[in-house]
Design a protein around this nucleic acid. Structure first.
Lengths: 111, 111
DNA sequence: AATTAATACATAGAAGTCTTAGGTATATAA
DNA sequence: TTATATACCTAAGACTTCTATGTATTAATT
């Protein structure tokens, strides 16, 4: 997931947000979407993504639908009900995080 | 460093920014300062901070001045020349990171 | 025709960061 | 006198991500 250490810990939040936005997506699609949105700046590695998806599925945050497209396997993931409410919390946490980081980096603007 | 995973990877950037801002600080002071700035939302644990300070010192990013205040040891850290220029990079990366995360979370606002 | 790139999944081992849980020691407040 | 605040520290484990590798199909390039 790129060189910068900063992205550590944000992968699952990114995945959940994208699924909230797009209904359902498969792994490879997620990597391409993130690359596109961030104009190539953020590249999610498959070695990080697939285990993360499996973990979220095991936790009941995501559910999977396997399909065969062009003789190639695709695993579509979407948020469960639990996952949807969990995503609300994650996004609130992300907003707090960004706010806190901006308070530290730009103390003059925090009031 | 709090419950949210998001803060992983941002500790050294926070430390470097605070030192750039305040000239020199000691470990305990940094933990208190962050707590104050973020209104208690972000608590840096000492188990994370002290090893991070030692690593930054070993890398030549920070240098230390040991002083005795009220019969108690204090290790003041400040940025080296290398550390100062490194901080510029770190803050640019942080800005990029925040921008990218906002592009993902709020795709309508990114243009 | 053969090779490379793109699509699509996966895992194992290593690296790195942070948490938890302890430890030492002094000064102050209850 | 006991707890809280100040001030440093480390070790073991948890957790996340990276690197490297693997399989397999399709499309593009040479």
């Amino acid at each position: 997931m790129k060189n910068s250490q900063l992205y550590k810990g944000s992968l699952t939040t990114i995945v959940m947000k994208l699924l909230e936005e797009n209904g359902r997506m498969y792994g490879y699609e997620i990597t391409q979407k993130v690359k596109e949105i961030t104009k190539g700046e953020l590249k999610i590695t498959e070695g990080a993504l697939y285990p993360a998806l499996h973990k979220l599925e095991a936790e009941g945050v995501l559910e999977v639908e396997i399909e065969n497209v062009d003789n190639r396997l695709r695993k579509y993931y979407k948020l469960t009900e639990k996952g949807t409410s969990e995503t609300v919390n994650r996004l609130a946490e992300l907003e707090e995080f960004i706010k806190n980081m901006q308070s530290i980096v730009n103390p003059k603007l925090s009031f």
